[in-house]
Design a protein around this nucleic acid. Sequence first.
RNA 1: GGAGUGGUAGUUCAGUCGGUUAGAACGCUGGCCUGUCAAGCCAGAGGCCGCGGGUUCAAGUCCCGUCCGCUCCGCCA
Length: 593
Amino acid sequence: MTSILHTTRRTQGNGAYRAADIGRQVAVYGWVQAYRHHGGVVFVDVRDRTGFVQIRCESDRAAVHALALSLRPEWVVAATGKVISRGANVNPKIPTGEVEVEVDGLEVLSEAQTPPFEIKDGVHANDDLRLQYRYLDLRRPELNRNFAARSQVTQLTRKYFIDNGFLELETPILTKSTPEGARDYLVPSRIHPGQFYALPQSPQQFKQLFMMAGMDRYMQICRCFRDEDLRADRQPEFTQLDLELSFATREELYELMEGYVAFVWKQFLGVEVPLPLRRMTYAEAMDNYGCDKPDLRFGLPLTDLTETLRGQTEFRPFVAALEAGGLVKALAIADGAAFSRKDLDVTFPQEAAAHGAKGVAWARIAAAGEWSGPVAKSLSPELRAALQDRLGAAEGALVLFVADKPAVANAALARLRLVVGERLNLLDKNRWAFLWVTDFPMFEYDEAEGRWAAMHHPFTSPRPDHLERLERDPGAVLAQAYDLVLNGTELGGGSIRIHQSDVQAKVFRLLGLSDDQIRAKFGFFVDALQYGTPPHGGIAFGLDRMMMLLVGADSLRDVIAFPKTARATCLMSEAPCTVEPKQLAELHIAAAN
RNA sequence: GGAGUGGUAGUUCAGUCGGUUAGAACGCUGGCCUGUCAAGCCAGAGGCCGCGGGUUCAAGUCCCGUCCGCUCCGCCA
């Protein structure tokens, strides 16, 4: 018997069947989603990635009917037949519910073991099981859709940038290890004993070299690798939309990227993103939200009460923090009643403690001047009035205070702000709060190493008006660096680069690199800078994170086809793994234990 | 490196103060069933309670260790 596969091509995706198809002779291919036996008639839902359609196998076709009775979930089948109306039995709950296929030919293309979990939306197995059987998890409509969406968005991305004059160029995967930044994944060289390639953390230097090479506008959708610990929004390998352009200022780059997100949001979601996007300096973000990627889907800004409180209260934690040069900041929540004593005593302190805070002081405002809570008795009526005024807090409000070193107070309150926002249901997945955070500091002091470190990377250009501060006061130099933030997630970051070799040399020196080190690590790059470098800048954009937000996923794992676990393993393939001693010998390396 | 949390049937979970034979739902197997579509009805099979040690007359339950998943801190230019 000749297989249906060889005689009749698949007519269309199974999810596409509609009333307009009635009367067509068709071929349906796919997986058995479900079957319902009624003795004389068997209904089977046949699924592919476009959806599913019901086929009907009647007992008057004995062979078809007998075979239909034997079908089991996830078997792969082919069926031919005629599309007919379901008449009075239309199912309005499914897109293909008006029709069914009356089967005249049925074939099992592949049988399946009972899967370890049901292939259905809403049926969630544990993460480890899902990862072990990733190919089955991906078969679930929900995940299947995520990857169709991802394909669509990468196509939109290419179209937008190519239409804007960009060249799609490739950069090496086997490249050179660089100091600073994330830990590199290393690849031993067989040909050069004792030497190693590194996988790229990003194609940073190569894309700048493209600018020096006159490529003008470069884009790439590229894989990047960082050997650091994972998070829900961090995988060891991830996909970056990488861009660089010459002869452009920050403004031009903002415009370009704003056009890009507006294009993707419009084409993919049908959502208009109002332009220009909001902007905020790093300093403003830290002051008002305690972090450099504030979620602006809701308000709840932080208020700095340091000067209001200084010398005005004996409350020990406040006094101690102020004496140590710290600050007191607070979060005023209008709907204080939404939070219980348990939140105040357990949840909030725990969250704050994770960021190093020793505690969270709180006060409830029953009416003007009528405060309760552990801090209240240490605050005079005048001080209460001043605080209420500064906080804009009315009756019914709850105020959370954290007094600590600036970094700790900010981090703890930024976290509390998110916890509160989540509890008040302010994190609407259908709201899109884009934000440029600009003017990052060039350097931050690394206490452990006792030296300055680049906050972004060492090729970032200082603001031109801050050049003279480079040697005098490195901590005060602001960079021409920017992050694009969406709903509290850092989508991308970039900068205008240094294109003058003398400035680049100064920055390297400031970072504590000797001439020898500069030569060894960046020699080719420093040389290249001296052969006519156009002013240029760019951005790297996390495509996985953008997809996560676009499809409403909670984890990067739902938009990366074959992701790693929190311990950077692949539960399906069992990578990483040991290798044959022979392989190690060829690479001139030995395992340490 | 650290903190939290989870691991019980194929799956998702429940399992009281440590107590007799470890349950439910879904799934699976068999049967019935001609309009189901989360099909229904009947019957059945299915357990190393993550692993190792300890306490106890007795451990899924308590203690210690360990492995694995997840979340977070550190880390991530």
